[in-house]
């Protein structure tokens, strides 16, 4: 993987455009969600939190952690092994943890309004909390000192293990009785027949697009940061080796 080290600015033209698209689509989502879309017949205005809760959850669970898993597999596979995949996995997982944290935060507020409680130990909420802790654990494992190869391999294995919880979170609402509602779109029963009003569906769609753009933009910058950190660590290592060598020559 060759990336030109750095021009004067750290952003490319593409990421700048992507950044502006992200800001505009997020602003549009907020306007659609808070002003234009209607209240729900049962949930009232609290339904407006759907347009943050669902996009952050999808982007965290399926996209961020999906990319982390894929990149980890590609790292473990000898033919595709490269630092690039390891850094991609780490960057994506961090963004996933951020998004999942927001899912939990918005979910708590939504729960407070509709159910009357911030939190309850039903299967969906519990397995999601487990997922959050698992990926925080993954980010911690990445920092455990070892040789770079050992560090990356260890992280890749943990990443794949952590992803096993994603299908459990997804199916929790079908496998067990939960207070949390079932999937509106992503179930065999609902995929072709979602029960959601037009404006609400379009607002949600826009939210998913906005958060996808945000994910891509954050990824571009977070990956670059990870790459710079890696270069810096390499250089520190090289300096240390040179010093040792100089000492050895002197003695």
């Amino acid at each position: 993987m060759t990336i030109s080290p750095s021009s004067a600015s750290t952003s490319s033209r593409t990421t700048t455009i992507l950044g502006w698209l992200t800001v505009v689509s997020l602003a549009l989502t907020a306007v659609m969600a808070l002003v234009i879309s209607p209240a729900d017949v049962n949930m009232g205005d609290s339904v407006r939190l759907l347009y943050l809760h669902v996009p952050t959850a999808w982007l965290a669970m399926y996209v961020s952690f999906g990319v982390t898993t894929l990149a980890s597999v590609l790292y473990l596979w000898k033919r595709t092994r490269s630092r690039f995949w390891d850094l991609t996995a780490g960057a994506s997982a961090e963004i996933g943890v951020l998004f999942l944290g927001l899912t939990l935060l918005i979910g708590a507020i939504w729960g407070r309004i509709t159910w009357g409680v911030w939190w309850t130990w039903d299967a969906r909420l519990t397995t999601t909390a487990v997922l959050f802790v698992l990926y925080i654990g993954y980010l911690a494992v990445r920092k455990v000192p070892a040789s770079p190869e050992v560090q990356s391999r260890r992280a890749a294995i943990v990443a794949i293990a952590a992803f096993l919880d994603v299908p459990i979170v997804h199916f929790a609402v079908e496998w067990w009785r939960t207070l949390h509602q079932d999937a509106t779109f992503l179930s065999d029963r609902r995929l072709l027949d979602p029960q959601i009003g037009g404006t609400m569906a379009w607002t949600l769609f826009l939210g998913v697009v906005a958060f996808t753009l945000l994910y891509c933009w954050l990824m571009a910058h977070r990956f670059r940061l990870a790459w710079l950190e890696d270069r810096l660590a390499d250089r520190a290592m090289q300096v240390a080796i040179d010093e040792r060598r100089a000492e050895a020559v002197q003695s």
Partner: peptide
């Protein structure tokens, strides 16, 4: 001593006349 209101996975506009299309 505690009521938790369950919610289904369906969302319906409170004022249906404001909604012109449905996603089907």
């Amino acid at each position: 001593d505690r009521i938790l209101v369950r919610h289904s996975e369906t969302y319906v506009a409170e004022n249906p006349e404001r909604v012109t299309t449905t996603l089907r």
